[in-house]
């Protein structure tokens, strides 16, 4: 039954026009970026680790956003369509429903990474970076995707409207991503400093720099990634805790 739900979600959200459309957009963006690295003079002067890092940042950013959009529509969408009732009548527990939806998002992420691998391979060509890229993508990338999808599923469970769940999910992502848009000066004071020091997005970016540029040892990088692991555990815990709230709309 669990697998059947995962299959249904995958078919609905990934192997659909919407899902392939998302894949096409990701591929188009990666193509534009990769093409810029060889055609824009300023970008062509960048070293390969920076090129790979920039591509990974774009890939992660877009995919977190897409995963959150998909996650936000999953439960709230069922409520809006009135299909939640039939889903709750299945022998699946509410927790398993959430887990099946998370699994579907994870499958989407794996397909996106498959689409992005040729780009990463040609950009990391002969620089001995590809194994590290795979490790980062499937390790830290997957953790981030699960964490943010869990947040989106929480909003989707608590709220009735897909639109509201989506707006809140995107806002949550943008708040954690604030340090990426700020200058180094702004990151050193006030709220931006607090977010910068604790944000899982910031921590993953710092770790990325230390892996690809500074070639730091694994233990040091793992320490830097503590906010990512904490965020992952908390997001997953609350997503499973809030699963109890997966219920019919009033009057249904």
């Amino acid at each position: 039954m669990f697998l059947a739900l995962v299959k249904k979600e995958t078919k609905e959200h990934i192997f659909s026009r919407k899902g392939i459309g998302f894949l096409f957009v990701v591929s188009l963006l990666l193509s534009i970026l990769s093409f810029s690295f060889i055609s824009v003079k300023e970008l062509s002067l960048l070293d390969q680790p920076t090129v790979v890092m920039t591509t990974l940042k774009l890939l992660l950013g877009i995919n977190i956003l897409i995963a959150m959009v998909i996650g936000a529509t999953m439960i709230a969408g069922e409520k809006e369509k009135g299909t939640l009732e039939s889903l709750l009548l299945t022998p699946l527990t509410k927790r398993n429903i959430i887990l099946a939806k998370l699994a579907a998002i994870l499958i989407f992420w794996l397909i996106v990474t498959l689409v992005s691998l040729p780009y990463l391979f040609v950009l990391a060509y002969q620089a001995n970076l590809f194994p590290t890229v795979l490790l980062y993508l499937y390790g830290i990338g997957t953790i981030l995707i699960i964490s943010f999808s869990s947040i989106a599923l929480i909003f989707s469970t608590v709220l009735v409207s897909t639109k509201n769940a989506m707006i809140l999910a995107i806002m949550a992502f943008l708040i954690t991503a604030i340090p990426m848009f700020l200058s180094t000066t702004m990151k050193k004071s006030g709220l931006a400093k607090v977010i910068s020091e604790n944000s899982p997005v910031s921590a993953s970016m710092t770790a990325m720099k230390d892996i690809f540029i500074n070639k730091m040892a694994a233990p040091q990088v793992l320490i830097e990634l503590i906010p990512v692991f904490i965020f992952f555990l908390l997001a997953l815990f609350f997503a499973l805790l809030i699963a109890k709230k997966v219920d019919f709309l009033r009057g249904e």
């Binding site: 894949l23 591929s27 193509s31 093409f35 960048l46 391979f121 040609v122």
Partner: peptide, 20 residues
Amino acid sequence: NTKIVPLQVQIVSTVMPLLL
């Protein structure tokens, strides 16, 4: 020190979106 082969990038950047 870049070892990126522009032709490889051009092929991937064109073929992948077209396939999708």
